[in-house]
Design a protein around this nucleic acid. Structure first.
Length: 122
RNA sequence: GCUGCAAGCUAAGCUAUCGUUCCUGCUUUGGCGGGAGAGGAAAGUCCGGACAGCUCAGAGCAACGCACCGGUGAAGAGCCGGGUGAUGCCAAAAGCGUCAACAGAAAGUGCCACAGAAAAUAACUACCUCUUUGGAGGAAAAGGUGAAAAUGUGAGGUAAGAGCUCACAACUUUUUAUGGCAACAUACAAAGUGGGUAAACCUUGCGUGCUGAAAUGCCACAUAAACCGUCGCCUGAGAGCGGCUCGUUCAAUGACGGAGGGUAGGCAGAUUGAUUGCGCAGUGCAAAUUGCGUAACAGAUAAAUGAUAGCUCACGACAAAAUCCGGCUUACAGGCUUGCAGUAAUU
RNA sequence: GGUCCGGUAGCUCAGUUGGAUAGAGCAUCAGCCUUCUAAGCUGAGGGUCAUUGGUUCGAAUCCAAUCCGGAUCA
């Protein structure tokens, strides 16, 4: 997700849940012809991480974990013919190691695919 | 040898798989291949520029900044060299090191608690003269207070005293001479003895137009050239020239203010330039610089360097570009080099 | 990316411009009052004035650098 407008809309109108220490904002919409089924963004706050090095590190870890586990969600979205915007915010206070991030991101993505299935059946 | 402190240099490497930003080649436009991809501080934003815009920005005042001299450089509150002063080591000198906002207190104003008579045109005790014994006058040596008390010592001098006079010494200012580009140093002479504070106001000299890539130009998309208030329509509302005054330029599908609406996409700016490293030669005490050769140089825009596995070792610190450069400051594991201090053993 | 402001007792703040005793309220502790508590009254303790250096006889205050916190500019 690269558009500032989209991100503002997501925080304003989207829904959220948290898988400590990650908070997930998401919003389903009918698919756009130009964009793909899934758009994604990451952030780590300046409040807990003063140094840019730490923020970059966290964002890279989440991005990597997301990359390796996103395929299932993508498939489900394609089946349901839906577009999903997701934003991951890291709310913890210490720099995590990769294993934790991988695990938690997996849980979050699973939850998202459940939501996806529910919305299609409803 | 060990420990501590300071300064400088360096800032783990390799292989495989997947992934990522930019460039590039091919392409069936799905992709595939190749190349490049954070730092010595990228940080703080403390200085100085480049660059861009403001109708190229005038004068005076104000404001702000700088303040020994020379060099360096695009420039500077940087760096280098020198001078002067302070200070540490040392018994002292010399020497070595460290530090300095280092113009002016003899233009003016203010301030200097407590103590003390008095904190700046001095007079409490004590001193001397006169006296009606209340005091009046003279003088500034001695005492004590304080961070600081009217230059110090000796002699003359006097009623007592006093740079009042003289000698020596200290310091300040000025003239001249010599050395030095200069700051300044040395010597001689003259005048003088003014307490401190300018990191209090200030004075003097020099300098500064302002804003800051969220600058700025272009393209695309969108809306409200609507509404309310004030003023004005060439006898000038108002705006620009950073603040004020003058001056000057512009100014009528007007200007200012209020409330509100729309957009927030793309391209340029933008990354090869006062560039950086290395080698050789030249100039210079040095900072630095000239010539030749050679090598290197990211460019994102919710923002690219990560994950996994394996190997080696000292087991990896501080820390991430955001327009770009030159400095300064701060952070920093381990390793290497140098210096200083302490200590143990041996010779 | 730029600009501006702040840091004083456990907490909230004065004092900073204009230099010489570091203060107020709440909280804490002790005593008085009360049968006891609260309230009230009296007293006490508690401070590297963010850090380091400089100017000065003397610095919370002036100056410089650093650290931390906050605000603001489309």
């Amino acid at each position: 997700m690269k558009s500032r407008k989209l991100i503002e809309q997501l925080f304003k109108e989207g829904k959220s849940f948290s898988v400590q220490p990650i908070r997930v904002y998401w919003m389903l919409s009918p698919p756009n012809s130009n964009t793909s089924y899934l758009q994604f963004g990451v952030a780590a706050g300046t409040k807990h991480f003063k140094h840019a090095v730490d923020r970059n590190r966290i964002k890279r870890l989440i991005r990597e974990a997301y990359r390796l586990q996103k395929i299932e969600l993508q498939l489900k979205l394609k089946d349901a013919n839906l577009h999903l915007n997701v934003f991951f915010i890291f709310t913890g206070k210490e720099v995590p190691d990769y294993k934790l991030v991988f695990e938690k991101t997996g849980i979050a993505l699973q939850k998202l695919s459940e939501i996806c299935v529910q919305s299609t059946s409803a």
